[in-house]
């Protein structure tokens, strides 16, 4: 078990870069990303794991960064929305009008991107299972569904 006490300098792998950051044991990954590193794409929406606005990828899997301590992310590959460069899902969101206010968008994009990576042939049931983790209050979800389906080879 790793032990931390007081403020510690931690080296984190974020969006392909190794960055030093000062953390307290109680800091959530969301807090560190936003307040220490200026990566504000991940949003606080509930800080309780209910809404998914803060979703990032840890070793390519979606994780709600409000529920993960920064110290737990040591030695893991962290990807935030800022690390998503020209991913097909971003274009699909623009073309399908899959957002309005945009506040939940980073979180949805991270889940969708991971889904496309891990389950490139996901069926409707799997898509629903994955995307139920996040809340969008502006759209009717249909737009998001069209976006994810446009990049997934939906054969099964």
């Amino acid at each position: 078990m790793i032990k931390f006490s007081g403020k510690t300098v931690l080296n984190l792998n974020i969006n392909g870069e190794n960055l030093d950051v000062v953390v307290k044991p109680s800091d959530t990954l969301l807090y560190t990303l936003r307040n220490e590193l200026g990566l504000t794409g991940a949003k606080p929406g509930c800080e309780n794991g209910d809404c998914g606005s803060c979703t990032v990828l840890i070793d390519d899997w979606p994780i709600k960064s409000c529920l993960m301590l920064t110290v737990e992310a040591k030695d893991k590959k962290i990807t935030t929305i800022e690390g998503l460069k020209n991913a097909p899902i971003q274009k699909a969101f623009v073309e399908n009008f899959a957002f309005q206010c945009g506040y939940c968008t980073s979180g949805f994009l991270m889940v969708c991107n991971s889904l496309a990576l891990h389950k490139p042939k996901a069926n409707n049931h799997t898509i629903q299972e994955w995307l139920q983790s996040n809340i969008c209050r502006c759209t009717g979800y249909e737009e998001i569904q069209s976006a994810i389906k446009s990049i997934i080879n939906n054969e099964i």
Binding site: R34, T40, G41, K43, E82, V94, E95, F97, G102, S106
Partner: peptide
Amino acid sequence: VSTPRKESWDKVTGRVKYNGDII
């Protein structure tokens, strides 16, 4: 015409700043 919203790409890249993002 369905012009994509002006801030589309700023929103899908997480670059848009909401009030709480500026501290």
